[in-house]
Simulated scan of single mutants.
Amino acid sequence: MFLPLHDGVPLKNMKTPLATRCLIGVCVIAYLATFYGPLGEDAMVGGFGFIPSVLFGTEVLPEGYPFVPAELTLATNIFLHGSLFHLIGNMLFLWVFGDNVEDAMGHLRFILFFLLCGMAASLAHAFITTEPHRPLIGASGGVSGVVAAYLILYPRVKIWGLFLKGIPLHLPAYWTIGFWFVLQFAAAFLGGDDSVGWFAHLGGFIVGAILTPLLRRRYDPVLARVQAQELQAPR
């Protein structure tokens, strides 16, 4: 287990990570609507969650479901969460890593990046899962893409985080995120909790790594060296 807490990397290209905050806000609103709204949890998950068998046409939901076309649930499921812990965990990752990735991409490209990673994660899950009738929900795939982007952009930045059973450590991103990735990989191929879409995490991470060089701002080697020196300076 790994939970990021703080990285201390200043924003260089914007004052406020508006896109990151908006995505967190939408996830929180969706969570409140799921558990406290008029539709109820089952209707929200059935209507907006991603069900692979429905997308592939091997299963049909009851009349009235889904509330959006099956193809669109590749995106709508990203904003739903099954528990408060599920929500807090994903939003914590997005809060710590998202602002700096958004800073490197810009508001609109960051939102596009997040959605593409989340949708790719949903498809990765769909092609591998042995339970295609089971709804997939959660921002984990999109968040995994953000984590991959952060690793590429800020590999040596030191991150405060809680490891294993709550051990606080201050380690470079390539160690902390590497540890997180190994956990995802092991759980996916060695048998982790069946209720978690581990392959969605891996799919989002891989697509995030592919998209980061394409969506980041134009690379300036002089500015990059200055920023690297600032980030590595003693604090």
Rank of each mutant, 00 (worst) to 15 (best):
H201A: 09
T58Q: 13
G203Y: 05
E230V: 06
C22T: 14
L123A: 02
A30Q: 06
G64C: 10
D220T: 03
G57L: 04
P172F: 04
Y31H: 10
V147E: 10
N90S: 15
L215P: 01
G161V: 02
Y31S: 09
E59Q: 13
T58V: 10
V226P: 08
L55E: 01
P17M: 03
L94R: 00
M1V: 04
E71Q: 07
H86F: 07
F48S: 04
V196W: 08
F185Y: 09
P132N: 06
L11E: 10
H81V: 05
L112Q: 07
L5I: 10
I51K: 00
A70K: 07
A121W: 02
S83K: 00
A120N: 06
S122K: 00
P155H: 02
H81Y: 07
M119L: 05
W198V: 00
R21C: 12
A186N: 12
P168E: 11
V147A: 09
P52T: 12
E230L: 12
L39H: 07
L211D: 05
G40Y: 07
R21Q: 14
G8Q: 05
F181I: 13
V9D: 09
R156M: 14
C22R: 11
H125S: 12
L223V: 08
L123K: 00
V143I: 15
L61E: 03
F110S: 04
R225I: 09
M91V: 12
V60R: 06
L94N: 03
A209M: 12
T16I: 13
Y65E: 02
A209P: 05
R21Y: 15
V26D: 12
L162E: 12
L151V: 00
F127I: 15
P4I: 04
A187L: 03
R235N: 10
G204Y: 03
A149M: 02
I128F: 13
G178H: 03
I210W: 07
T130Y: 13
G166A: 02
E71C: 09
F110T: 03
L151T: 01
A224Q: 12
G161A: 13
E41S: 08
G191V: 06
D7K: 06
M119C: 09
A173M: 00
I167C: 06
E59L: 14
C117P: 00
E230W: 01
G106P: 05
R21L: 15
I159M: 04
G82I: 06
R218L: 13
L223N: 13
L11C: 07
L190C: 13
N77S: 15
S122M: 02
E59C: 09
P221Q: 09
R216F: 12
E102I: 00
G89Q: 13
T76Y: 04
Y150W: 08
G8C: 11
V196P: 01
F189L: 14
L87Y: 03
R235C: 14
Q184H: 10
A70M: 01
G64F: 03
S140T: 14
V146D: 00
E230M: 11
T16W: 14
I78Q: 10
I29G: 09
T212Y: 10
I137A: 02
P17R: 04
T130R: 13
Y36R: 06
G161E: 11
G98S: 07
G98V: 04
I29Q: 08
G208R: 03
I137R: 00
